[in-house]
């Protein structure tokens, strides 16, 4: 991919917590993974633009598995740790889980549309998916991850290590 992911809110003003891990925060680590997913999604879009549905199907598959791995790492590692530490199990993490359900459904529908070679259906679903995904990511990046960094400062090295192993082995 030519275009580097956007450093929209990862700028000089972002507080970095340096504990063991060289300046990595949950926010920066997970945000980088969001951008990686964006790049994979863009690959699928480019293939659809060229009307290459075989390539698009494969590219979308990569995107989907990256997204699912991201959701898993959140639902199995990050969110439970956050909930255990803060006692907020019905709060923001619950909303994020519900949005994951919606995103999973949208991705499944998009896969079906690509299999059927129906570009109109795919484009409509992709449009919905893009906005849903971006506003979901925005909430995590600007609200939830900073809260995780704040509340999980003791657990940070261990959590980051687990997230790294979960997201890097695919």
């Amino acid at each position: 991919m030519v275009v580097k992911a956007h450093p929209l809110w990862r700028n000089e003003n972002e507080p970095s917590i340096a504990i063991g891990h060289a300046m990595t925060t949950i926010r920066s680590f997970m945000t980088d993974d969001h951008r990686r997913c964006d790049d994979l999604f863009a690959d699928a879009e480019q293939a659809v633009a060229k009307k290459d549905f075989t390539l698009a199907g494969a590219a979308f598959g990569h995107f989907q598995s990256a997204m699912l791995a991201h959701f898993d790492s959140e639902e199995k590692t990050l969110f439970p740790t956050f909930e255990a530490k803060t006692g907020m199990s019905m709060g923001p993490t619950q909303v994020m889980r519900m949005e994951h359900v919606q995103l999973r459904a949208l991705m499944n529908d998009a896969v079906d549309a690509l299999k059927a070679g129906n570009s109109d259906d795919y484009l409509g679903l992709a449009d919905t998916l893009v906005i849903m995904m971006q506003q979901h990511n925005m909430k995590e990046e600007n609200i939830l991850y900073p809260m995780c960094d704040q509340h999980l400062s003791d657990e940070l090295p261990a959590v980051l290590e687990r997230l790294e192993t979960e997201l890097c082995e695919e």
């Binding site: 956007h6 929209l8 999604f41 506003q135």
Partner: peptide
């Protein structure tokens, strides 16, 4: 703009 069009982000500065 980045959200709807999947563009890179605006430069922070």
């Amino acid at each position: 703009v980045p959200m709807f069009q999947l563009t890179p982000g605006y430069p922070a500065r």
